[in-house]
């Protein structure tokens, strides 16, 4: 009995691990080259050519790592939750694998955002850690990631683990705006609005452009790591299928 297909063709193709393995094999080099060019070029631009900030001097150059990693850590959580939801609703194995691959990347990027934020805090605020609203939200986001990773590794059955983490990620996704709002509000209650890290009235074009390059570079980097992990996961789970046998022995 043919069900009515109401999603585009590629959506169904994505459900096939083999098709996914092949397409990521083609996309991987493109994104790898793009990430390399953007990140190396962006770093050079950020470190050498971008002007120093008139208030913070050269410590401002940390923004080119801090902001892209903070954005990426949040997007990665979103992607994990959405992929988990697709896996729950359409029982799509590949979506489960994508969700599983997102968690460790997101956690490491959140750690990077926190570390650079703390390092930036030292010359700006005179302390390694300040309970700034954004840093605190990022710390909680890291906790959410760690919870997802812990739950995933605690459940032995792959399918159950994927479904349970998807539910947890979705609950977290609903909670993120609430957490963000409450932390922002808590922060303004406890300390008068001081100099914040990233809220700037208007960024000069020569500062903003390298930041954009770095953000896109970080996304490309994420795509590369994502695909590497996804391919591993596909091979691992499809190891009994004939095409993986051929791939390994051939």
């Amino acid at each position: 009995m043919a069900e009515k297909k109401w999603m585009p063709r590629w959506f169904y193709q994505l459900a096939s691990p083999r098709w996914c393995y092949q397409i990521t094999g083609k996309l991987l080099p493109i994104f790898a080259v793009a990430a390399l060019i953007l990140l190396v070029g962006g770093t050079a631009w950020a470190l050498i050519y971008a002007p120093a900030d008139y208030q913070q001097g050269n410590s401002f150059r940390i923004i080119y790592i801090h902001v892209p990693s903070a954005i990426l850590a949040q997007s990665c959580y979103m992607m994990m939750a959405v992929a988990g939801a697709i896996g729950l609703i359409w029982k799509m194995k590949v979506a489960d694998m994508v969700a599983k691959a997102c968690a460790p990347i997101g956690a490491s990027i959140a750690i990077l955002a926190l570390a650079t934020g703390a390092i930036w805090g030292k010359p700006t605020w005179g302390a390694w850690w300040v309970w700034d609203a954004r840093l605190t939200s990022m710390l909680i986001l890291l906790f959410l990631y760690l919870g997802v990773i812990a739950l995933n590794s605690a459940i032995e059955s792959e399918q159950t683990a994927a479904q349970a983490t998807a539910v947890l990620a979705l609950v977290g996704l609903v909670n993120i705006p609430i957490i963000k709002y409450s932390v922002d509000w808590w922060n303004t209650l406890h300390q008068p609005a001081t100099f914040t890290l990233t809220e700037r009235p208007a960024m000069a074009m020569e500062m903003w452009l390298p930041l954009l390059v770095m953000v896109i570079g970080f996304y490309c980097f994420f795509a590369v790591v994502m695909m590497l992990r996804l391919r591993n996961e596909i091979i691992q789970r499809e190891r009994r299928s004939s095409w993986v046998r051929e791939l390994i022995s051939g």
Partner: peptide, 16 residues
């Protein structure tokens, strides 16, 4: 030297 902030800037980029 990065205007005296060399340690912080280079540490950030090294961690990245």
């Amino acid at each position: 030297d990065m205007g005296g902030h060399g340690l912080y800037v280079w540490l950030s980029y090294a961690i990245a």
